[in-house]
Design a binder for these strands. Structure first.
Lengths: 262, 262
DNA sequence: GGCCATTAATTTCTCAGACAAATGCTATCT
DNA sequence: AGATAGCATTTGTCTGAGAAATTAATGGCC
């Protein structure tokens, strides 16, 4: 039996798009399997020997993958017990990779709602902070992103990247490290989401005017206007999602927000 | 020369409190060194051979530690270039471990401000959502936590844990997976912070009344009252921090919030 | 002299196999 | 029946050797 290690030929489907390292691609595969419900919380993964054997990789590569997933709160390893999938509450859902994996497939309605709810809470306030603290450089980058966005439109990858850049730079302008840290994660999610939206149906409406409203308010350092414009932008994004009916308690949360402008 | 691997005796200070695995304690040490500014962004770590040699651990243990840090966005590894500390914007600051490491030392004023700003944005809205969606079980757990909190007070570890449980259960009651995911991280940070506060000076004031106000509002499903009570609670927490002077733009952010109640 | 291809060197990456440590389980003894 | 000691299983750690990737250097060619 020859010891030929024809990795390239043997695995048919691994690391589909980017040239990830072996451990990263294993982590990605396992991670997606977990967040998509393939491996439920509480499920015990196959032992290191068996699992690495099935994947035809070394134990070390597999172990490094598991260690990455553990660092993201998806699994937990113990001697003798094995490696088991953690409860959902333990998952680091705001981790950029996890978020990407969650929105790589068809995201569930509840999850979709949860993300928009978070954005509804954070991004208007972030826009207000950005209006108060933005530098001219922030403004310049945001303008450039919007201009490229209007050139390409959201139907093209380049346009979606420009959209992502706009939101990233906006959050960066808040000068709050924690809010900035949300950037990467939420940005990837929104990016994947826009792709999903586009996949389901061509965009109904051009979201550019609202983006410019936000930009103008931040340019004029008008915090209140920036908050209102961003809230409007997100509401429209929610409305444009190809979703038939939002859950019943969704309207509650909007009611909650509306009541604050009394 | 005997090959005795007297790990226990050799390393004087590693895994100080909990019995972490070797790779986890290495990750913790390196991670704390990074977030505390010992290794600046852009700094290239020593090669695997040298680094593992200095720490007197195997390459695999060291590699697994680095892989964990990479999963948290703190470092990035490339062949030939080596492993280098990522830019701060890449750090997953909301990762529970990272947050713990950040607040393990004396946190910088800006970071402190950033965390409170995030809490000011999220937790009042979370309280409002919790008021709308809480179950009786949520309520029961929160009441229990508050009762234990009043028994022990925040000067004792048990009291701080109860405080953490209260906030965790509150966020859990929002039924929003992403907000819940923030729980673990922010909770650890607040926990470490309360310790820090307590270390610097005995608590000025008993924060229990505000906690009960929040609880009552949520119990009565009064979203608006819950939001207001939680905002008040956080403002008082900020005020009780042993900080001489908050940065100049901090008042701006409060001004921003005040303007919304017009 | 400048540009391009080729080679070399360095660092992480992957593999293999062995032993150590931790811990749940079981059988045995009281 | 309960405690205790041994056993088995799983992850954890160590060692050493190549493989792959990527930057730097080198030399040939125009």
């Amino acid at each position: 039996m020859p010891i030929l290690k024809s990795n390239q030929a043997a695995d048919g489907e691994r690391h589909s798009r980017k040239q990830l390292r072996l451990h990263s691609s294993i982590a990605r595969d396992l991670g997606m399997r977990i967040v998509s419900g393939g491996y439920r919380p509480g499920h015990v993964l196959a032992g290191e020997i068996e699992a690495s054997g099935q994947l035809k990789v070394s134990r070390s590569a597999y172990r490094e993958a598991v260690r990455m997933l553990a660092a993201k709160g998806l699994v937990q390893s113990r001697t003798r017990t094995g490696t088991r999938v953690s409860a959902v509450e333990q998952w680091h859902l705001l981790d950029p990779d996890v978020l990407t994996w969650v929105f790589a497939g068809e995201p569930e309605l509840e999850v979709l709602q949860g993300l928009f709810e978070l954005r509804t809470i954070i991004e208007p306030e972030a826009a207000a902070l950005a209006a108060a603290r933005r530098s001219d450089k922030n403004l310049q980058i945001m303008r450039g992103a919007l201009e490229r966005m209007s050139q390409h439109t959201l139907n093209v990858e380049a346009g979606r990247i420009a959209d992502k850049e706009f939101h990233s730079e906006l959050l960066r302008a808040t000068r709050n490290p924690f809010i900035i840290s949300l950037t990467n994660g939420v940005a990837s999610a929104v990016h994947a989401l826009t792709e999903f939206k586009q996949r389901a149906q061509a965009l109904k409406r051009d979201p550019l005017p609202e983006h410019w409203h936000v930009f103008e308010a931040i340019a004029h350092q008008d915090a209140q206007a920036a908050r209102a414009a961003m809230a409007e932008l997100i509401q429209l994004a929610i409305h444009d999602m190809p979703v038939k009916r939002w859950p019943e308690n969704w309207t509650d949360s909007r009611l909650v927000r509306d009541s604050e402008s009394i």
